[in-house]
Design a protein around this nucleic acid. Structure first.
Lengths: 126, 126
DNA sequence: CTACAGTCTCACAGCGCTGTCAGGGTCAAG
DNA sequence: CTTGACCCTGACAGCGCTGTGAGACTGTAG
């Protein structure tokens, strides 16, 4: 299948499909014309990349996950690597969540303060 | 006070202090030499900007908050504006939190799946 | 053969900061 | 006067994508 159809099927833009390739996540075969040719395996792979990508992983991180998915290195070692990567990513996400929660609390705090006083915080000397 | 000292006092880099000005958050006076001159009011303001900034607000949003802080427009109207801005920002943050939480759940799901099976998900046909 | 749709590569733009560098003034102390 | 620290403006780079455009080729239907 050509890149346009794969794009339509997966909802990933043509631009991004080429970008995935540039980043080493995809290696579609080429026709004589130079056109990229994707098979069902690639389509599956793209869908999987999308899941991780939607989950907020950067392509760089996803790439470290793919060897296990593609199974072109010994299983156990890689699955350990993958578990480590996932754990690291989950940790990062939770860190960001905690950060956002404290940000929200700060803003909520301002809002409460504002409800009590006419102005935010201490008045500036101007 | 010169920009360097303000930077040291507030922990905001010189570059960012100039950037705040570029974005209309600060309007320090100038000496004959062209050097920026900051007073205690500006120092306070910078600290306040930092609080919002650390809370994840974009400078653009912070700028809409400042007129109330500086009190150069009628209070009530502005405080309403500020309350609206804060509420909007809080909403945005909570949206991002929800998004990250679902991302995390997806990754945790993969991790669980991985614990049961030797490989992530369905095997690719290669 | 002629359109026209599809593809190719290369490359620039933009998001919102943030650092850094260049080339050039200013100001205090020695 | 000279040195060194400090300041000025302007501009480029980088983060991780993502869109868009140019200029050129390919493939298919009429």
């Amino acid at each position: 299948m050509q890149i346009g159809e794969l794009s339509r099927r997966t909802g990933v833009s043509v631009r991004m499909l080429r970008y995935y390739e540039e980043e080493g996540l995809l290696q579609p075969s080429r026709r004589d014309s130079g056109y990229r040719d994707y098979g069902p395996a690639e389509e599956q792979l793209v869908r999987r990349i999308r899941v991780f990508s939607d989950a907020g992983l950067k392509l760089h991180a996803i790439r470290t996950l793919l060897p296990c998915v593609l199974n072109d290195r010994p299983e156990l070692e890689l699955c350990n690597e993958v578990r480590a990567t996932l754990n690291r990513e989950i940790g990062g996400i939770e860190e960001r969540i905690a950060c956002l929660e404290s940000s929200r609390d700060i803003l909520v705090g301002y809002l409460r303060q504002d409800a009590k006083r006419p102005r935010i915080g201490v008045r500036l000397q101007r």
